[in-house]
Design a protein around this nucleic acid. Structure first.
Lengths: 198, 198, 198, 198
DNA sequence: AATGAATGAGAGTTCATTCAT
DNA sequence: CATGAATGAACTCTCATTCAT
C-alpha cells in the first residue's frame, strides 16, 4: 500500500496511485504465474493475470530479471534477515546453519524453475543471480564461519560454492517423489563435519 | 569411441556410405553446437554446422531426444561399462565408487546444458532422461551396495536420488571458476560415510 | 485526447482506429487472395498483400476458418436476408426460390475455392461450413416449403441435400467457358417440378 | 520379351520382369491409398505401401496425374465400353442413359477426392481431367443424343457441361449420410425431360 | 532399373518487444 | 502513464523432387 515507507525500494513516493496499484498487481500476478508456468512464463500470461497491459509490465520491469527479483525480494530479504536471528536462537552454530539452510531450501524449492534461473550464464537472469547471491552469501558465510569457529564443521569450504550447490540440489524437485533435495542437502552438510564427529 | 575407419567396414552397401558420413557429421555437429548453445539449440544451427539439409536431421533423428541420446550414447555406455571394471580394480568399494563418480562428473560437466536436459518434466528430453537413468542407475547401485556391504558407507540412501543429486551439482559449472562440482560431490560422498570413520 | 483524426468516425477510442483499419485491410486482402489462390492460400501471402505483419492476422483471426467466415459474412448475411424479401416480392414461390438460388450461385461462383472449402470433412473449414449452412439452410427451407405448398414443386427433397448440390454445381466454374453452373441448377430445379407441369 | 500382349497399354513387352511387377504393385498400392487418403496422398505413403522406393514411382509415373490416370484407366475404360452395350440392352435410350450415369456415379463416388481432382485448373491433374473427359464425353454424347432422338429428353444440353455437373454432384459424398449424389443426379436428369412427360 | 538419402522451399505458429494512441 | 495492436524473427516440421550409388 502507499503508506509511508522510508526503506521501501519500490516505494510509492510521489507516484500515481494507479501506478502503485499496477505494480502490486503485477507482482502478485507474476508470483502466481511463476508457480504455474515457471519464471520463463510468457509475459502475456502475467499481464493477462494482472489485468494490465503488456506495456505496463515493460514500464515497471524493463527486464524479466527485474520482475523476478522484485517478486522474490521479500522472501530473499526474510531469508537474509533470519540468519542472525537463528544464530542467536539456536543451540549451536551448526544447528543454526542447518535451520537456515532449511529456510533456503523452502524458498528455492517452491519456486518452479527458480533454481534454474539462478544459473549464471542465463543472461536474462544475471541480475537475479547477482542479487540473490549478493544478499545471501554474506549471511551464509556468517553462519558457516560460526560453525567452523565452534569446531562443528571443517574449514576450507567456500560459502559461495556451497550455497550454489545447495541451490542446485533443489532443481527439478516437485515432479518426482523419489527426489527430495532435503535429504541430499543433509548429506552435504554432513560431509562438512569433522571426521570422527557425530 | 569409434576409431578411424579407413577401409569403411561399417559402410555396408549402396547409399549407406553417404548416410553414414552424414550421420557422423550430424553427431559431431550436434555435439559441438550443444556445447555452444545447449541441447535446445535450433535444429537449423545443427544442420548448418553439419553442412546438411534440415530434412536430413529429421531423417536420422526424428525427435530431438533421439539426437541427444545418440550424441551422448557412446559416453554413457563407456561410463556404464566402467563400473564393473573399477569395482574390480580399485582398492576398496568406496574408492571404486568415488572414481566412477569422477567419470560421471567428467561426462556431465563437459556437456553444457546436459544436466539441465536431464531434468524430468522436460518433456522433449524424457527419452534422454530415461535412457540415462536406465543405463547408469543400476551400475551406480552396484557400486553403492558394495560400499555399504563393506561398511564403508551407511545404508539408507537411494541410488536414484543420489545420482540425480550428483547430476544436479554439475549444473552450471563452466562459466564460473568459483564453482567446482567435484568438491561438492566429494562433500556429498563424505556425508555418506559412517560416523566415526575417516 | 484524440490526436490527428480528421475523418475518424469509426475510430472509436484509443488504438482502435488502427485495428479497425487493419482488419479492413485484412479482409480485403484475404478476399482478393482467395480469388487468386483459393481459401488455402498461405497466410503469409494474405499478410503481405494487406501490408501487415503475420502476427496481426493471428491476432484478428486466430484460425483460418474465422478469417474465411469473416470475409464472407456480409455476403452470407445479405443472401440470408434476401430470402423473405424475395418471397414477398416474387410472383410465385417457385420464382422466389429461383431468384434466391441465383443470388446463392452469384455468391458461391465468384469465390474461387469457396465451394471446395464448404465440403464437410475439410477440418479447417468446418466452422465455415457450419456457419454457412446454419445461416442459409433455414432460409432455403422456407422458400422450398412455400413452393411445395403452392404445388409448384414436388415434396420429398431435403433442403440440406439440395443446397449442397447447388453448391457443388458451382465448383470449378470460371476457368471454363463451357461450364455454366446456372444452366445446371436450372435443370436441377426443373427436376423438382411436378410431372406434367411447365 | 515376355508375354504377347497386343492390346496392353502398360504392356510388358521387352521390359524387365521386376519393372512390370513394380508397376503393378504401384498401381495396387496407389488405388488403396487413394481410397484412404485421397488422390493427394503423400507419395511416400504410396511408395511405402508398394514396398518400392520413391524413385521408382517417379520413373514409372513422372507426374501424379499419370499415376492417377493409370490407376483409374481400367475403370474408365470399362465405363466407356459399357455405353454402347447399355444402349443396345436397355428398353429405352433414356433408361440406357440413366443406367450408364449410375455406373459413372459408382465410379466417381467411390474415389475419395477424385471428383475434386477432376476440376480443371487443378494443374497437377490437368492430364487426368483431359483423359477422363476425352474418353467419356463421347460415350455420354451418344447416349444423350439417342435419348433426344427418341424424344425422351429435350435437346439443348451440352454433354460436356452435364457430365461435369454430374461429376460435381459426386463431390463430398461419403462423410455425410444426408447427402446422396444419386438423388440429385436423378433430379438433374429429370430436369432434362420434356415438359408434360412422366 | 531401383533405391532411398538429401535437399530445401514453404507453411504454421509463438512471443518478446516496440510504439502509436 | 497505460494500453494492447503491430511487428517480425525464430522455430518446428512436412513433403515433392532430385540424384548419387
Amino acid at each position: 500500500m502507499s503508506t509511508t515507507d522510508p526503506a521501501g525500494q519500490t516505494s510509492a513516493r510521489g507516484r500515481r496511485a494507479d501506478a502503485v496499484r499496477n505494480e502490486q498487481a503485477l507482482l502478485a500476478a507474476a508470483a502466481a504465474v511463476f508457480v504455474t508456468s515457471g519464471v520463463d512464463a510468457p509475459i502475456r500470461e502475467i499481464a493477462a493475470r494482472a489485468e494490465v497491459g503488456i506495456g505496463t509490465i515493460y514500464r515497471h520491469f524493463p527486464t524479466r530479471a527485474e520482475l523476478v527479483v522484485a517478486v522474490y525480494r521479500h522472501q530473499v530479504e526474510a531469508c537474509a534477515e533470519a540468519g542472525p536471528r537463528l544464530s542467536a536462537e539456536a543451540d549451536s552454530p551448526f544447528l543454526a546453519l542447518r535451520r537456515w539452510v532449511d529456510l533456503l531450501i523452502d524458498f528455492v524449492v517452491t519456486k518452479h524453475g527458480l533454481a534454474d534461473a539462478l544459473q549464471p550464464g542465463n543472461s536474462a537472469f544475471e541480475a537475479l543471480h547477482t542479487y540473490f547471491l549478493d544478499r545471501l552469501v554474506p549471511v551464509f558465510t556468517q553462519l558457516l564461519d560460526a560453525a567452523v569457529q565452534a569446531g562443528e564443521i571443517d574449514p576450507g569450504t567456500e560459502p559461495y560454492e556451497l550455497m550454489r550447490g545447495i541451490g542446485n540440489l533443489c532443481i527439478g524437485h516437485g515432479s518426482d517423489p523419489r527426489y527430495d533435495p532435503r535429504r541430499l542437502v543433509d548429506l552435504l552438510l554432513n560431509g562438512l563435519r569433522p571426521t570422527g564427529t557425530s
